[in-house]
Deep mutational scan, measured.
Amino acid sequence: NQASVVANQLIPINTALTLVMMRSEVVTPVGIPAEDIPRLVGMQVNRAVPLGTTLMPDMVKGYA
């Protein structure tokens, strides 16, 4: 099963992502693939992302 990117903490709206904010986990539904974590660093979320939430492509500005 493919691992997805999951929020390791509450990520406030418009926050630029850092490695410490994300972890990989096998979840359903599948979100952004864990191998894209390096690409996500520095990108901003367009909404608040609660701890444990799977990051979906539409949550990250410029990802989709």
Rank of each mutant, 00 (worst) to 15 (best):
S24G: 14
A34R: 10
T28Y: 08
G42H: 04
I37L: 12
E35C: 02
P33N: 09
M56V: 06
T54R: 13
K61N: 11
R23K: 13
G31N: 01
M21Q: 11
V6D: 00
Q44S: 04
P38Q: 13
L10R: 12
R23N: 09
R47Q: 15
G31Q: 03
T18A: 03
A64N: 12
V41E: 04
S24I: 10
G62Q: 14
R23Y: 13
A48V: 09
L19N: 06
T15W: 15
A64W: 03
P57I: 14
V27T: 15
D58L: 07
P57V: 11
T15K: 05
T53S: 07
S24C: 02
V5E: 00
T28H: 15
I13A: 07
Y63K: 01
M59T: 10
I11M: 15
G52W: 10
N8P: 03
V26Y: 13
I32L: 03
A3E: 06
L40S: 01
N14F: 08
Q2G: 08
L51Y: 10
V6L: 07
V60L: 06
Q2N: 14
V27S: 04
G31W: 03
V30Q: 11
T18W: 04
V27E: 04
T28V: 13
A64Q: 10
A3L: 13
V49M: 11
P50K: 10
L10T: 09
Q2H: 15
P12D: 13
V20F: 05
A48D: 10
P38D: 13
P57M: 06
Q2T: 15
A3G: 12
T18H: 06
G52T: 06
A34N: 14
P50F: 12
T53Y: 11
I11G: 00
G62E: 15
N46P: 13
V41K: 06
M59I: 08
S24L: 13
I37S: 14
G52I: 01
L55H: 00
S4P: 00
M56K: 09
V60G: 00
R23V: 08
M43L: 09
A48R: 07
M22N: 00
Q9L: 15
Q9V: 07
S24E: 13
V45E: 01
I37C: 02
V26Q: 13
M43T: 15
I37K: 14
S24Q: 11
A34H: 06
R39Q: 12
R23F: 06
P33R: 15
I13M: 09
A64E: 08
G62S: 05
V49D: 01
M59H: 10
L10F: 08
G42V: 02
D58P: 05
A64F: 06
A7Y: 01
L19I: 09
S4H: 03
V49P: 01
N14G: 12
G52L: 06
V26R: 07
A64C: 03
T53M: 08
A16Q: 05
L19G: 05
G31F: 02
L10D: 10
V45C: 02
R47A: 12
V27G: 12
S4G: 15
Q9P: 01
I32Y: 03
N1G: 10
A34S: 11
A16T: 09
M56E: 08
K61F: 10
M59N: 14
N8L: 10
T54G: 06
N14P: 03
Q44G: 12
Q9D: 11
G52R: 08
V6I: 11
T18S: 05
I32E: 01
L40E: 01
I11K: 00
G62R: 05
I32R: 00
E25P: 02
D36M: 09
A7V: 09
T54E: 02
G31L: 01
V6C: 02
E25L: 10
T18P: 01
L10N: 04
V27Y: 03
A3K: 12
V45H: 00
T15E: 15
L51G: 07
A48P: 14
T18D: 05
